[in-house]
């Protein structure tokens, strides 16, 4: 038996919105630790790892560890039946091939029961090594989102360069080129507006903008984004989900041959 209850139902809607443009189908792993997912995009260039810890739910019961294969697009369709202020309960029984979503309005005057078919998904978990990154940039997630959107109107790739001067995002396209530099700014009174750069070594890496722009769909989950970079390694773009966990995106770099 698996049952979880999330009073802030809009959070699940936003999590699925942050995944659905990247991943078609995925196995959700359920255990006493929480509700998690690891999945790659169809071309194996990007990977998303989600963790929603059990303590973050109002109710969380998972009698044994198991995986639920779900189509993310279908899950997004089902979640469209929930209002933003609804309480969401997800239930599944051992050995069944369906999952039930229950949406309750805050005043309990409307209850929706939605059943969705589960899928058999053959997917391998990848071992993600714990790495010490050469440069870690923390910045407002809205700022990062607007930089990615702006640059993607000019070019297809973004080069991220971290130095003592700050972090520079640059692109080049047929119509011209552009670069945006953000300097460290920790003096602000609002921590969510700070830009903090921890650098052991200067790093320069190039990535496909279409993937990074997809990651910024998670902007509403967190006021800050953390971008961790090391030479010739996938970048990690992390959005913390308050009191619950995180959504982390990994993107393989473009490499000079």
């Amino acid at each position: 038996m698996f049952e979880l209850r999330l009073v802030q139902g809009s959070l699940l809607k936003r999590v699925i919105d942050a995944i659905k443009d990247l991943v078609n189908d995925a196995n959700f792993d359920c255990s006493s630790t929480g509700f998690s997912l690891q999945a790659m995009d169809s071309s194996h260039v990007a990977l998303v790892a989600l963790l929603l810890r059990s303590e973050g739910f109002e109710h969380f019961r998972c009698d044994r560890t198991f995986s639920m294969g779900m189509s993310i697009a279908n899950m997004a369709k089902m979640l469209k039946c929930a209002s933003n202020d609804d309480i969401i309960t997800i239930k599944a029984d051992d050995g069944t091939d369906t999952v039930t979503f229950m949406f309750e309005s805050p005043s309990q005057d409307k209850i929706s029961d939605i059943e969705m078919k589960l899928m058999d998904i053959d997917s391998d978990h990848l071992g993600i090594p714990d790495a010490e990154y050469e440069a870690i940039v923390r910045m407002p997630s809205t700022e990062f989102g607007s930089i990615c959107t702006s640059l993607s109107t000019i070019g297809d790739t973004v080069t991220i360069a971290v130095s003592k001067q700050g972090v520079t995002f640059s692109t080049k396209g047929d119509i011209g080129s552009g670069n945006i530099t953000c300097r460290q700014n920790s003096s602000t009174e609002k921590p969510e507006e700070a830009t903090i750069i921890e650098m052991k070594e200067p790093v320069v890496l190039t990535f496909a903008l279409k993937y990074i722009t997809t990651f910024t769909k998670a902007t509403s989950l967190s006021s800050q984004v953390t971008i961790s970079l090391s030479s010739d390694m996938p970048v990690v773009v992390e959005y913390k989900i308050a009191e619950m966990g995180h959504i982390r995106y990994y993107l393989a770099p473009k490499i000079e041959e």
């Binding site: 391998d124 190039t206 996938p234 393989a252 000079e256």
Partner: peptide, 14 residues
């Protein structure tokens, strides 16, 4: 030229 690498080049299955 510059080429897109894949995640599986960096992270192993298991």
């Amino acid at each position: 030229g510059i080429k897109q690498s894949t995640i599986t080049k960096f992270f192993s299955k298991g």
